[in-house]
């Protein structure tokens, strides 16, 4: 067992974990933060994307021990006091989800893009989301939602 201390969505947790524990399993099974889903076994789908120390990562491809001392933001940390973020609202309004399985990862990847490029073209949005698979929407409305969010001067 290895001792870790991780801040997740604003709360600091101290735990003893097996080194092989993946960050996504730590979030879901240990902390009960099941907003972050697992969609594949091959690091391809991006459903599990969270922020680690300010950048997007696939939480199925990071060990919990690698996040020791770090700060994680999951989809559950986006809404503030029950208010959806601008990006979440845009996903809602532009109908950017059907089953919703890919949505947490899409939101985290899109946030990352908007931080680096506050006003991306639709081409840039498509490139930035290339690590996130959606099997329902055909992506059109996801791109529209990110674009709509980028037109608002509030944090994603």
């Amino acid at each position: 067992m290895t001792h870790i201390s991780v801040k997740v969505d604003g709360t600091t947790y101290e735990d003893d974990v097996e080194p092989r524990l993946l960050l996504v399993h730590y979030l879901r099974d240990r902390l009960g933060l099941t907003g972050t889903p697992i969609g594949c076994d091959t690091s391809n789908c991006g459903a599990c994307t969270v922020e680690l120390d300010g950048v997007s990562v696939k939480s199925c491809s990071v060990l919990a021990v690698q996040a020791d001392g770090g700060e994680v933001t999951t989809v559950e940390g986006l809404a503030q006091d029950g208010e959806l973020s601008a990006l979440q609202r845009a996903f809602h309004e532009k109908h950017a989800l059907q089953c919703g399985y890919c949505t947490p990862g899409m939101l985290m990847a899109a946030r990352d893009l908007l931080r680096e490029h506050p006003h991306p073209t639709s081409e840039e949005i498509r490139h930035a989301l290339e690590g996130n698979l959606c099997r329902c929407t055909g992506y059109q409305n996801i791109v529209r939602a990110v674009q709509a969010a980028s037109e608002q001067e509030v944090p994603a």
């Binding site: 690091s43 991006g46 990071v62 930035a128």
Partner: peptide
Amino acid sequence: VADPAVRHR
């Protein structure tokens, strides 16, 4: 190479 999240790590 890969995608932005993979490129961060």
